[in-house]
């Protein structure tokens, strides 16, 4: 297994891309803005006690649609072109001419690009933590849980992106598929998607059926909010376990499909 060598190469290469640092800046601005709003604007109303927990609760609760969509966008951006671009440029022939199996290539790319995403996120996480110190009770434990969960979500999307990138042979096609997926993610999170499915299957409106929450959480951005509730003190119930499994599945299933297609592809 040589995936570590591929991951190292991938990290070294991607970290030098200016677009990556633009991406890190976007996330950092978002994190700082959110922390700032929570700390000063809400605090001025004196209605909410300022703690790390209330902050995380706000971000993964009410703010989850926005955070998760941003993480999805950034994660997919980091992953979606990585294999296809190597096929377009021909560097895949250099890579596969060395003793790397195609599985090593795919796994190495997920590992390297995930490290890149987490490095980019780290800027925002640290900036946000600097604000957290000014809170009455920073609750760093809860905040670390949030960092871990958000990173996991990001890695799931990097992996999904690498999976899509491995599955198709052209940049144009992977771009189309990735944007279609992003649209579907956001659409699903509004509740309209699951509502339509429930109506189509049962003729009933809205969350009348017991499995509605499970259906809503088949996409990792929705599942993210469910697991977030656990971090800020909720119970570890069946829905939380399911949601965690969903996030992990998005890290594994598209990648397995992509590898299956890439394994025998002509490059």
């Amino acid at each position: 297994m040589t995936w570590r060598d591929v991951a190292k190469k991938e990290f070294r290469d991607a970290v030098r891309a200016r677009s990556l640092w633009a991406l890190a800046a976007v996330f950092a601005v978002f994190m700082v803005a959110t922390t700032y709003v929570h700390a000063f604007v809400f605090a001025a109303t004196d209605e909410v006690e300022q703690t790390g927990t209330s902050f995380v609760s706000g971000v993964v609760g009410q703010g989850s649609a926005f955070v998760a969509a941003l993480v999805a966008l950034l994660g997919l951006l980091v992953g979606y072109a990585t294999v296809v671009d190597e096929r377009d440029s021909g560097s895949i022939k250099f890579l596969l001419g060395l003793p790397h199996s195609r599985l090593d290539v795919v796994l190495g790319k997920v590992a390297g690009r995930s490290a890149v995403l987490v490095a980019a996120f780290a800027v925002g996480f640290v900036a946000s933590a600097a604000f957290l110190v000014t809170y009455d009770s920073p609750d760093f434990g809860v905040y670390l849980g949030f960092v871990a969960l958000t990173s996991l979500l990001g890695i799931a999307f990097v992996s999904t992106g690498v999976g899509l990138s491995s599955a198709v042979a052209s940049r144009r096609r992977v771009t189309a598929v990735t944007f279609a997926l992003l649209f579907l993610l956001v659409f699903w999170d509004t509740g309209a998607g699951p509502a339509i499915v429930v109506y189509a299957l049962t003729g009933e409106f809205g969350p009348a059926v017991w499995w509605y929450d499970y259906l809503a959480a088949v996409f990792p951005n929705v599942a993210y909010a469910n697991v977030g509730a656990l971090i800020v003190g909720g119970d570890f119930d069946r829905l939380v376990a399911y949601s965690l499994a969903v996030i992990v599945a998005w890290a594994v299933v598209p990648l397995a499909f992509g590898y299956y297609r890439f394994r025998d592809a002509d490059v």
Binding site: K9, K93, F94
Partner: peptide, 15 residues
């Protein structure tokens, strides 16, 4: 055990 120089290869521009 094999060294390869393919014809239509690419390099990593940032390395």
């Amino acid at each position: 055990r094999v060294g390869v120089l393919p014809e239509d290869f690419g390099v990593y521009p940032r390395l």
